[in-house]
Every structure is written in structure tokens, then in C-alpha cells.
Simulated scan of single mutants.
Amino acid sequence: MSLPHALLTALVEHPCSGSELAERFDKSIGYFWHATHQQIYRELARLEEALWIEALPAETGRGRKRQFRLLPAGRKELRRWIAEQQDPTPLRDELMVRLRAEAAIGPAGLAQEIARRQAMHQAKLDVYQRIEQRDFLGKEPSRERRLQHLVLKAGILQEQLSLAIAKEALEILGDPAA
């Protein structure tokens, strides 16, 4: 995925200022695609130059933020990108290489790092489950809401898998017979 398409997706959902977009990005797409606020602002300028978005005239007064909205060409690009064929991204997880290295050279103190990551995965899972409770359970199951929920469920499953792997790794690392 590319950052431009992530931003186009956010803007098709709701026109907003760059700072609002960065904040919304952190609370939604940012869970699956990281970008700094600087990267977002740079990309907004490129998207505007490509005529995929436009900045609406700023409201009068000091400190007023420019609002951005998607243009028809941006919607067309987003549709093209959605339909594009792309192979799955290969798994690149440094922890898996660390586990292999620990298997090859023996104990090297990896358990502490895994426990730290386990706490991080649990915290993220808790956030995802709160979002699920707040935004999806007991709500009208429209097509849009079901697709958004599917994305969230993928995040929940990923965190549950990471927790299961961490738990098993800690059991193996703590087993003196292993």
C-alpha cells in the first residue's frame, strides 16, 4: 500500500484539514500503515499537485486551517488502485529471526524482549476490542460498516496471534529441558 492511497481513502471518508487528517490517520489507518505527520503533509502537497485533492479556501481569521477534499481524479485513482492486482507482502518479522538465532546459539536473554512485546500486543488488542465495542457491536450492519469491521477484526486476529506466539515462545525459553 502506498501513503497516497491511504490518504485518499481517509479523505474520501471525510474532507478535513491536514492536522485533522493526521489525527484521524493515527486513530484508524495508522494502526495498519504508519506515517509521520511530516510525511502526511508532504504527501498532501503532492496529491494537490497531481490534482487528486484540492485545498478549499481557508476560513477568514488567523490560524484557520485549509480543508482538503477529494477530487474526481483522486476518486478515479483510488478506484484504479483498489482494483489493481498485487501479490501479498512477504512476512518480515525480526522476532522470528531472533528466535531462530536463539535456537542456534542458545540462551541470549530474548525472553525479556518477548515479554515486553507481549505487553504491547495486549495493549493494542485492548484498544482494538474497545473500538469494536464502541463502533461496531449492536450497530446497523451496513456494507461500509461490515468492511470497516472486517479490517478491525484482522487487527484483532493479528494481535491474538502475536500473543499466542509470545506465550509459546516464553514457555519454550523458560523450559530448562528445551
Rank of each mutant, 00 (worst) to 15 (best):
L3G: 02
P4G: 02
P4I: 05
H5T: 00
A6F: 00
L7E: 01
L8Q: 04
T9S: 07
V12H: 01
V12T: 07
E13F: 00
H14I: 00
H14A: 11
P15K: 13
G18N: 08
G18V: 02
S19M: 04
E20M: 09
E20Y: 03
L21I: 03
R24K: 06
F25S: 01
F25K: 00
D26R: 15
D26I: 01
S28H: 03
I29P: 00
I29D: 01
G30S: 09
G30V: 05
F32V: 05
H34A: 13
H34C: 08
H37K: 15
I40Q: 03
R42Q: 13
A45S: 15
A45V: 14
A50C: 14
A50G: 15
A50I: 05
A50T: 13
W52L: 10
I53Q: 01
I53R: 04
E54Q: 15
A55W: 08
L56W: 06
A58M: 07
G61A: 10
R64A: 15
K65R: 14
R66S: 13
Q67C: 10
F68H: 15
L71E: 11
G74E: 05
G74N: 11
G74D: 01
K76N: 08
E77T: 04
E77H: 04
R79M: 08
R80T: 09
R80Y: 06
I82R: 13
I82L: 14
A83M: 12
A83D: 13
E84R: 15
Q86T: 10
Q86S: 14
Q86A: 11
P88R: 03
P88T: 00
T89N: 02
T89W: 02
T89A: 05
P90K: 09
P90E: 12
L91T: 02
D93R: 09
D93P: 01
R98Y: 11
L99F: 13
A101M: 11
A101W: 11
A103R: 13
A103Q: 14
A104D: 12
I105A: 08
G106I: 06
A108Q: 11
Q112Y: 06
E113P: 04
E113H: 08
E113G: 07
A115V: 04
A115F: 06
Q118H: 14
A119K: 12
Q122H: 10
Q122G: 07
D126R: 12
V127G: 00
V127T: 11
R130N: 10
R130M: 05
I131N: 00
I131W: 00
E132V: 02
Q133D: 14
R134A: 11
D135V: 03
F136W: 07
L137G: 05
L137R: 08
K139P: 03
K139T: 10
K139S: 10
P141Y: 05
R143Q: 10
E144V: 07
R145T: 01
R146M: 12
L147A: 11
Q148T: 02
H149Y: 09
H149V: 04
V151A: 03
G155D: 05
G155R: 02
L157Y: 02
L157R: 06
Q158E: 14
Q158P: 02
S162A: 15
S162Y: 11
S162Q: 15
L163P: 05
L163K: 03
L163R: 07
I165R: 05
I165N: 04
A166W: 00
A166M: 07
E168R: 14
A169Q: 10
L170E: 06
I172S: 13
P176K: 13
P176I: 11
P176M: 13
A177V: 12
A177K: 12
